[in-house]
Design a protein around this nucleic acid. Structure first.
Length: 480
RNA sequence: CCGGGUGUGGCGAAGUUUGGUAUCGCGCUUGACUGGGGGUCAAGAGGCCGCAGGUUCAAGUCCUGUCACUCGGACCA
């Protein structure tokens, strides 16, 4: 009965019943996404796109603060260009889509629709980098890329998806490594302080790292179903691509050198992460800092004298205070509106009706915990701002508990298998560094290595898989 | 790519076994009354049953092919 009382939206499958179906229901009922006629290609509806725009606004500012400039490169890559770096093409060729005709003419050389733009940036950098004075080059591109995935899901795996890709060139390996870590930290900060998604910061194993990279840094998050989501990656390339693409510059010593390279990216997948981290059985729950609408105002008995005006006055005050606020004065019933904006995850609801007007008050309801309070209209701006902060913090704390409570040490592969089957989450073990053990772990326990955390713990001396001396502590999990 | 499930007004479904006038709920439109948790009443609109072939006097229903969605697996941001 208590559960029934909690459940106020009936169009969304309970996540305990079927998490995958719950996720799809939320994407559609919150009007984030629609399906198109092509598999894996989704329509981002205004509300979903507005969330992405907020991500862009915040990240773009951080990129610019750290000296990056936005550029735009072509979406087609000649096959010969893609072929130049061996590991890279091996990694991406299986999921490339190709353009073979221009009008009615068959092309001499086929063009790949970019799955990522390292090769294009390298070709361009070869043209414009000649001297150490041309370095560093700190470029970023906002665009879509295309990967012909076999299975697709809204936000988590699109064939075409929106992202940003930073590509930078540096005079020294140290500088490039610093850049890799700097951007990695920006991603971690963005996840934690804006998306309220706690992260595990670490390095990918050789098996899991980006095709062509020397090192891949990753922020890994835990979803509500205890599966892992790779939220963002930052790669250090050394000078491998620079050599393959013949990028050289004259150093202060007047000798030719190859520059050192990085790339880093996050995508609309992060929206999927937010849904699966904070959502509940009534729908989406958005962290206030990225919510397109932070406060929804619902007038009660809105046709009564003066009600709309009173609501509008409150809306104007909140707007003045820089709060993203919307009023729904449509003639749907209040109950309908409550459900609608809950599905859409609006962090705070404000109700104002004739009874409140008499008392100079309104009702505020938190989306994250349903808490309902009557507050005075005096200082409503401060009250609302304060409550939005509480929601933001509340969401982070809850997600942090989920991560902490479901991360546990294991001594043997058998223990990982057992605990993964019964409780999921992240298992941490010692590891010898051998790829054979990663494959074995996948086979036996059904998990892949998520990362080698930067914050290492000493859990023992030997690898959980083979018993040989251990080199690192590794997190394992089932990933999206 | 492999295996299971599903495609019928905008959404969710019944009808398919046994071929014979296209059904229901929600939503939508118009109007009135309502309004503090998905309101009530009345009157309307809307579908060549995913697509393409085939069998038949007759196909939503049977056959073949194909596409999409979905769940699980392998692969990947």
């Amino acid at each position: 009965m208590a559960q029934e009382k909690n459940k106020q939206v009936s169009q969304i499958t309970d996540m305990e019943t079927d998490f995958a179906q719950w996720f799809t229901d939320v994407c559609r009922k919150a009007e984030l996404i629609d399906y198109s006629s092509i598999k894996g290609m989704f329509i981002l509806r205004p509300y979903g796109y507005a969330i992405w725009e907020n991500f862009q606004k915040i990240l773009d500012e951080k990129f610019k603060e750290t000296g990056h400039e936005n550029v735009y490169l072509p979406m087609l890559i000649p096959e010969s260009l893609l072929q130049k770096e061996k590991d890279h093409v091996e990694g991406f060729a299986p999921e490339c889509a190709w353009v073979t005709y221009g009008g009615s003419e068959k092309l001499e050389e086929r063009y790949c629709i970019r799955p990522t733009s390292e090769t294009l940036f390298c070709e361009h950098y070869a043209h414009i980098i000649h001297s150490h004075r041309d370095l560093p080059k700190l470029y970023n591109q906002w665009c879509s890329v295309l990967r012909w995935e076999k299975t697709s899901r809204p936000f988590l795996r699109h064939r075409e998806f929106l992202w940003q890709e930073g590509h930078t060139m540096h005079a020294t390996a140290e500088e490039a490594m610093e850049e890799t870590v700097r951007m990695f930290n920006i991603y971690a900060d963005f996840c934690e302080n804006y998306l309220a998604m706690p992260v595990v910061k670490g390095r990918k194993t050789d098996k899991e790292k980006f095709s062509g990279a020397e090192a891949t840094y990753t922020v890994e998050c835990m979803m509500h179903d205890k599966k892992a989501l790779q939220a963002g990656t930052s790669h250090y390339f050394g000078d491998g691509f620079a050599k393959a693409f013949d990028i050289t510059f004259a150093g202060k010593d007047n000798q030719p050198h190859h520059p050192f390279q990085t790339s880093w990216g996050v995508s609309t997948r992060l929206i999927g992460g937010v849904i699966m981290t904070h959502g509940d059985n009534n729908g989406l729950v958005l962290p206030p800092r990225i919510a397109p609408i932070q406060v929804i105002i619902i007038p009660v008995a809105q046709h009564k004298e003066g009600v709309l005006e009173a609501n509008e006055a409150v809306m104007d005050r909140l707007k003045q205070a820089g709060i993203r606020v919307k009023m729904d004065a449509s003639d749907n019933s209040p109950g309908w509106k409550f459900a609608e904006y809950e599905m859409k995850g609006v962090p705070l609801r404000l109700e104002l009706g004739p009874k409140d007007m008499e008392k100079n008050q309104c009702v505020l309801v938190r989306r994250d915990n349903g808490e309902k309070v009557f507050v005075s209209l005096d200082h409503i701006e401060a009250t609302v701002a304060d409550m939005l902060e509480q929601v933001q913090q509340g969401l982070y704390d809850k997600a942090k508990r989920n991560l902490d409570e479901n991360t546990y040490p294991c001594a043997t592969m058998e223990e990982v298998r057992e605990k993964m089957a019964s409780r999921g989450g992240f298992a941490k073990t010692m590891w010898c560094g051998d790829e054979a053990c990663e494959l074995k772990m996948k086979e036996v326990a059904g998990v892949s290595s998520r990362c080698i955390p930067l914050e290492q713990e000493h859990l023992g001396d030997v690898c959980a898989c083979c018993g040989k001396p251990a080199k690192h502590m590794v997190y394992w999990g089932v990933a999206y």
